[in-house]
Each structure stands twice: as C-alpha cells, then as structure tokens.
C-alpha cells in the first residue's frame, strides 16, 4: 500500500517536472516577451508575495469567493433536502434547475455586474447562484439514497426531529457535502475570478486582466500561478477533511 502511494506521488511529481520543462523549452524557443520562462514568472510571484502586493487582491477575491461559496452551499443544501423530501417541490423546481444549469456563465456575469451594479454583494450573490444548483443536485441525489435505508427505522423507533437532524441527517450528509464542497469551491473561485476579469475592478482576476492589457505576460502568469496555488491548497484541505470524515 505504501509502495503504491509513493509511485503515485512520483508520477504526480514527474508530470509537474515535465510540464515545467516543456514550458521552459517553449520559452527558450519562443520570443521572451510572448512567453516568459517559468523562473522569471516565479520570481515575479515571489516579489509580489514578499512585497505584500499580492495580499490585498488575494484577500478581496478570496473573501467574495468564500461568502458566495457559503451562500451557495446553504441554498444548495436546503434545496437538495427539500427536493429529496417533497416530490411536488422537485417537480416545481425541475425546469428552474435545468435553466440555471444551462445558462451561460458570461451572460450571468454581464447581467449581474451591470444591472445590480459593481458591488461586492453582486459578486457574492452571483457566485452563490452559480454554485447552488451543483450543490443542490449533489445533495438531492445523496438524500435519495438515504431515504430508503434509515427513515423507516427512525420512524419505528419514534425519534424526534432534532435528534434526527443531528444524529442522522448531518452525519449522513457530511461525505456528500464535502464532495459537493470541493466541486463548489472550484466553481466559486472561478466565477469570482471571471467576474473580476469581465469588469469588477479589483482582485486577482482584475490583476490578470491588467497584465493582459499592458501586455505584461510575466505579470499575468505570476497572478495566474497565485490563482492556481490557492485552488490547489483549497483542494488539498478539502481532500484531507474528506479522508478524515470518511474514515470516521
């Protein structure tokens, strides 16, 4: 088992090394301004972090992402539970859910930023609304499995609602919530970032857009690396939490 994990880790590290090598090779072949070498990009990123310039945009984007993510998780979980418990509610919201799943993200971003104004709240609500259907369908399907197994047992033992929520639903929902949370956070982080690229005047996305506008690819890639690193850290944290809960 341990051997297996090390070979997996080696393969994962090897792929990153190969990617970086390809990037470096491409940077040497292509004109420097069009594609700066990885070490230049990471040097710029280091500078941004050491000088503290990175933290204000990072905080702005992260704050909006987390608020929108929380909103989406709460709405989505609520929707999922309601849809699993009531057939009528599921039928009522079926089309709305379909519509919300298929609406192009760019249309939503333009619509929200312009109609509701460029405020933090707009982005938070937008992120929440994009995240909600994903979490909702996840929880709904997970609850579907749940229904058959345990409800009858709880009924026959005459267990109260409060105990049911804390004793049955929450422990049961934890693994699907964490799985949905991983997908949802990635989505939230991307939508917050995109709405900054398409018009919200601060945060990491705006920095990337500025980098493109002034044709400073090195800066653009440095901010992009920051974007990727944050996502990577979030993913690892969620995975850790997932592993702990599944074991438990």
């Amino acid at each position: 088992m341990v051997r297996f994990d090390t070979s997996a880790a080696l393969a994962q590290i090897a792929s990153i090394v190969v990617l970086l090598a390809l990037w470096a090779a491409a940077a040497i072949i292509v004109d420097m301004r069009a594609l700066p070498a990885p070490w230049l990009v990471f040097a710029t990123l280091g500078e941004l972090i050491v000088s503290g310039q990175a933290f204000a945009p990072l905080g702005e984007t992260l704050g909006r992402t987390l608020a929108g993510f929380a909103l989406g998780m709460v709405l989505g979980t609520g929707y999922g539970i309601a849809a699993a418990l009531s057939r009528t509610f599921r039928e009522l919201t079926l089309w709305l859910l379909q519509i919300s799943i298929f609406t192009p993200t760019l249309i939503l971003i333009f619509l929200f930023l312009i109609s509701l104004g460029r405020t933090n709240l707009t982005v938070i609500v937008l992120v929440g609304l994009v995240v909600m259907p994903v979490v909702g369908t996840y929880i709904r399907d997970a609850m579907g499995d749940f229904e058959d197994e345990l409800t009858e047992m709880a009924d026959s033992f005459k267990i109260g609602l409060r105990e049911r929520v804390t004793g049955m639903y929450l422990p049961f929902l934890m693994p699907p919530l964490l799985a949905a949370g991983r997908v949802a956070f990635t989505l939230a982080w991307k939508v917050a970032f995109l709405s900054e690229i398409f018009g919200f005047p601060n945060g990491i996305g705006w920095q990337v857009k500025t980098g493109y506008d002034i044709y400073n690819i090195q800066l653009l890639l440095a901010w992009l690396m920051l974007f990727i690193f944050v996502l990577l850290i979030a993913e690892q944290l969620m995975r850790l939490a997932q592993r702990r809960f599944v074991k438990w």
Partner: peptide, 29 residues
C-alpha cells in the same frame, strides 16, 4: 494507474484555469 497519476495534475491544471485566461496566453502565442 501510473498513467492516471501522471495525467492527474496536468488535467487538473487545464481544467482549473478559466478559458479566458487560456485565451490570453494563447492569443499572445
């Protein structure tokens, strides 16, 4: 399994970068 482990990171990166940023980079290239 080894191929999957090798592919996992590149696929994850390709997936996590928004399309418009890929467009920024590819446009320059």
């Amino acid at each position: 399994r080894l191929v999957f482990d090798f592919m996992a990171n590149p696929v994850w990166i390709a997936m996590s970068v928004p399309s418009v940023v890929w467009v920024f980079i590819l446009l320059v290239l």
